[in-house]
Structures are given as C-alpha cells and as structure tokens.
C-alpha cells in the first residue's frame, strides 16, 4: 500500500500546476503554449484511463467472447489481461482480413463490437468528441 496522494491525485496535481502556474507564462510563445496544453490534456487522458481501464478491459473481453462464441475467462492480472486481449485482437484482425466477417450476421456483430470499442477509446481519449457527436445526432433527428 502506498501513502497518498494516489496515482490519479498525483496526475491531477501535476496537471493543476501546469494549468495554473505554467501555461499563463507561455502566452507569448505559441508553440510552447500549445504543446503544454497538449501535455495537460495528456494528463487528463491518463487520469480517465486509470478510472475506466478495468471496466473497459472486462467489457471488451466479454464482447469478444460473444463475438467468437467463447467462454474464456479474463486473466486476473491486469497486464496479462491486456496481453491476452491484444492477442485476441490480433487474431480478430487476421480473421477480418481473411473474410471471416464478410457475411451477415457475423458482420453486424463485429460492427457492434468495433463501434463499442471506438466509443470506449474516446471515453478515455476525448469524451467531448462523443458529446458533440451525440448533440449533432439529436439535432439532426429533431430537424427530420
């Protein structure tokens, strides 16, 4: 057990320092200013990944089980789970390239999995992107 701050609290402390103390000093150097904004955003991504990673691993594993009609259980260790998931994704890529998912209904099931995975990635990397898409979709629905 480590003393506090926790990992996410540390990330947050660094992010707050950059945002409050460093970025205001950089207004005159556009390049450095922009790069530091990107760095702050990277820390936010890391923070969200910490909170969502375990859940996303489980969900992706369950989706692959459904897609591949398998009942494998996910390795308990996080690193092993990630490695196993990467291996399953690699095989899935091979199957896709070989045409195993060209026909319905497998194609539709694959598509749902891919959509869910892309959304999970963006919940970590850029939740605002998802919000804007949802807003746009509802706006388009409304106009219809």
């Amino acid at each position: 057990m480590y003393d506090r701050p926790t990992l996410s609290e540390l990330l947050d402390a660094v992010r707050a320092h950059l945002e409050e103390n460093i970025i205001p000093l950089l207004k005159d150097d556009r390049k450095l200013y922009y790069q530091t904004l990107v760095a702050v955003n990277a820390l936010r991504i890391a923070g969200r990944e910490l909170t969502m990673n375990a859940l996303h691993l489980q969900d992706e594993w369950a989706r692959l089980n459904f897609l591949q009609n398998s009942a494998d259980s996910i390795p308990a260790d996080d690193d092993e789970a990630r490695a196993a998931l990467a291996e399953r994704s690699r095989r899935l890529c091979e199957d896709i390239a070989a045409g195993s998912y060209d026909q319905y209904p497998r194609k539709a099931a694959l598509f749902e999995h891919l959509l869910a995975t892309a959304v999970e990635q963006l919940q970590v990397a850029n939740p605002r992107f998802l919000q804007i898409l949802a807003l746009e979709d509802s706006e388009r629905e409304r106009r219809r």
């Binding site: 990107v38 598509f111 990635q121």
Partner: peptide, 21 residues
Amino acid sequence: TSVELASLGRRSAEMQLEMLR
C-alpha cells in the same frame, strides 16, 4: 520526443469512429 506527436496516437479513435459511422 514530442508530447504533441505522442498524443496524436490517442486521437486515431476519433477517425476510427467517424469511419465506422
């Protein structure tokens, strides 16, 4: 070494989702 280049890797999912849609 560049945080800007590194971060682009995590932006790929934006184009992936758009492509799927």
